[in-house]
């Protein structure tokens, strides 16, 4: 018995909305980065599920997952660098308190 495609999509969307909720409610910049990663993972899950179950002949979905990996790695590296340099200018990682555009 195969698990239907819809079940994967439900899990994927649940993961995505959890990530959205995290980005909206948490104020710590590092946690926000984590929640963005969760959202990217939700997209990956949907892409792979479509690619394997929706009858794609080649691996288009999986290829895009590889690109998402690249983007995620770049995003985390740059995001953390921004968080750390913002923290160096004023000692907080609370995104509500980082408002000034001028250090």
């Amino acid at each position: 018995m195969h698990v239907p495609l819809g079940a994967y999509l439900v899990i994927s969307s649940a993961l995505f909305f959890i990530g959205v909720a995290g980005v909206l409610t948490r104020r710590n910049a590092v946690v926000i980065l984590m929640c963005v990663e969760l959202m990217l993972n939700a997209a990956n899950l949907a892409l792979v599920a479509f690619s394997r179950r929706f009858g794609a002949i080649d691996q288009r979905g999986s290829v895009f997952v590889v690109f998402v990996f690249v983007i995620a790695a770049a995003e985390v590296a740059v995001g953390l660098a921004i968080v750390l340099s913002a923290y160096r200018n004023r000692p907080t990682v609370d995104v509500d308190e980082v408002r000034a555009l001028k250090g």
């Binding site: 909206l24 409610t25 948490r26 104020r27 710590n28 910049a29 590092v30 946690v31 968080v83 750390l84 923290y87 000692p91 990682v93 609370d94 509500d96």
Partner: peptide, 11 residues
């Protein structure tokens, strides 16, 4: 590398 304070939630 960053300090963690306990003011976690906004909404």
């Amino acid at each position: 590398f960053t300090p963690q304070r306990h003011r976690a939630y906004a909404l």
